[in-house]
Design a protein around this nucleic acid. Structure first.
Lengths: 326, 326
DNA sequence: CTGAAAGCGCTTACAG
DNA sequence: CTGAAAGCGCTTACAG
């Protein structure tokens, strides 16, 4: 080094105001020259400071394009603030989720961004109770006060369904996600509200759900199409379900939208690469992720502020997959 | 704690053979009871041991479904071995890549899995020269000996092109990825080899490339379709290019495969949700990622073994997007 | 077989 | 304004 103690170096690194300008310059020059980077591991171990620039990200399914947008938003915002992110994709598997949480905990992350497994996810609840900074995305937690960034699912689902109705459909099915996920419930509510408001009776046989994945989309669509009175339109509860439904519809050589119309929750940047282009409820995973990290750092600064619930906008992207019923 | 020194606890944690069986039991019982987890940050700081269970993952574009599979493979394998992964998506941006590398370096990761920006990526080269354990995926490095897990791109491209020829096409375009990426070059080679071997002359106007993204796929397809002598088939150099091409083809109301056939490099799990189902060269990002981490830990164990180049299989998934030319 | 001590690279009261 | 010292939670020679 060049002339001063490690303590002083540390001070200039941490912008301690007490360092004399001349010393600061000297140190900064030496830092530049040697290409010195502080060891983040030691910093984190020593930390009494609130933020040590590492956050944990727990997502249920990275195969879902919505979550890759979330990852992008989080990661980009985090690194722009000199913060690294440890990723954990627990694939809707509670045991894996627990393992990941334990590992991240012992990595001394500053906090977590999580899309909990379901509304009563005990591992995530435990984290909140232990006092970790934590913000949920996409879904909240029922037993515990926590920051959430999400979308008005009910409204989004309402809009999608209402659009189908406007296009002349009355026999509208809803393939829902896994019923234990709060978003599923909200979307069902929106779907039902739209039907009721337009005087269409709800047929329970048309509201079916299992998992929130591709295979469920396929299988449930098959059931619907084979029913004695098949629907003329389907509203799918998420990305993966939509893709699965599309697979089955094409497989049966059915024409969209004439044989069956479809509107999906979750847009994809390549929705126009589908044939026909998919009408979908867009929510910006990127913005949600970004907002979540912002909120997380606010929470770290101020652990006592009341839990916030941030709603991001939803937008119906009208394309041609549910054009006017013939 | 229950009866022994921290040194002993550390020894049972690290399976030191010298600990008496009875003591070991005692300690393990206490660990279980208190729910103790060692602090990974302290472990990493102290490390003299080779592996401290954190790896850095640097990928060029997480929007590309191929890389999300890679992430999945890496992440799943890593956590199964009690190893966390810090993710960095540098979006094909060299400045970001450098920033991420610096951060990961000061996080004292055990090693890196990287898909380098291009073949002469100096930041990644520097890492290798500094002696970091590092394995490349998808693309190697030209100036430096390094482990690589990849696919035989030339062969994959050859198969795709040959299939198009078998289907009766002779005027076959190739939309390539960014020319500075080694895979791009290899795929062009395979494309040309197939044409030549079948006695088809190579028309330079039909081999065009810019970036490896959606917009380039759109734009380049537009150019191709507007040309005086448009191709009857297109071979797209990656996922994103394929999706962009599809968008443009649908936009122009062209029929696949009759108006224009298409085969893509990179399969997607929802390729059958496309209409018509996409014929594509499949490479398993998941397996590539998994293999890369295995190799990384071998490298950590044995820093001096010669660099390995692992080729994973490629498979032409024949579906209907390039059916027989009419 | 086990404990006391040193040290990993930092940060932060505490002196001066 | 700056340095010496303690300490974050571990691991590992070194004694015994």
């Amino acid at each position: 080094m060049a002339g001063v103690s490690v303590a002083t170096v540390s001070r200039v690194l941490n912008q301690d105001a007490s360092v004399k300008e001349a010393t600061r310059r000297l140190v900064q020059k030496a830092i530049k020259k040697t290409g010195y980077h502080p060891n983040r591991v030691a910093q984190r171990l020593r930390a009494t400071r609130k933020s040590r620039k590492l956050i944990g990200l727990l997502i249920p399914d990275i195969q879902n394009p919505f979550y890759v947008d979330v990852v992008r938003g989080i990661e980009e915002y985090a690194y722009a603030h000199d913060c690294a992110v440890v990723i954990g994709n627990f694939s809707q598997d509670a045991a894996k989720e627990k393992l990941y949480i334990d590992i991240l905990r012992s990595e001394s992350v500053d906090g977590f961004v999580v899309a909990p497994h379901h509304g009563r996810d005990q591992y995530v609840e435990a984290l909140v109770e232990e006092g970790y900074a934590l913000v949920c995305i996409d879904r909240g937690l029922t037993n515990v006060e926590v920051d959430v960034v999400m979308v008005d699912n009910q409204k989004g689902a309402y809009n999608a369904t209402a659009h189908l109705i406007k296009m002349g459909h009355t026999r509208i099915a809803h393939i829902t996600g896994n019923p234990s996920i709060p978003t599923t419930t909200d979307r069902i509510l929106g779907y039902k509200a739209a039907l009721m408001e337009h005087g269409i009776e709800i047929d329970p046989a048309l509201v079916i759900g299992r998992e929130s994945d591709f295979e469920s989309g396929q299988e449930l669509t098959r059931q619907l199409l084979e029913a004695p009175e098949p629907p003329s339109a389907i509203f799918t509860g998420n990305n993966l379900l939509t893709l699965g439904a599309l697979d089955m519809i094409h497989r049966r050589k059915l024409k969209i939208p004439d044989d069956v119309a479809i509107v999906g929750f979750d847009d994809m940047y390549w929705a126009t690469s589908l044939n026909p282009p998919l009408t979908a409820v867009r929510q910006s995973g990127y913005d949600i992720g970004k907002r979540a990290v912002e909120l997380l750092y606010q929470r770290i600064e101020d652990p006592d502020r009341p839990a916030a619930r941030v709603y991001m906008p939803t937008q119906l992207m009208v394309r041609t997959s549910c054009g006017p019923k013939k």
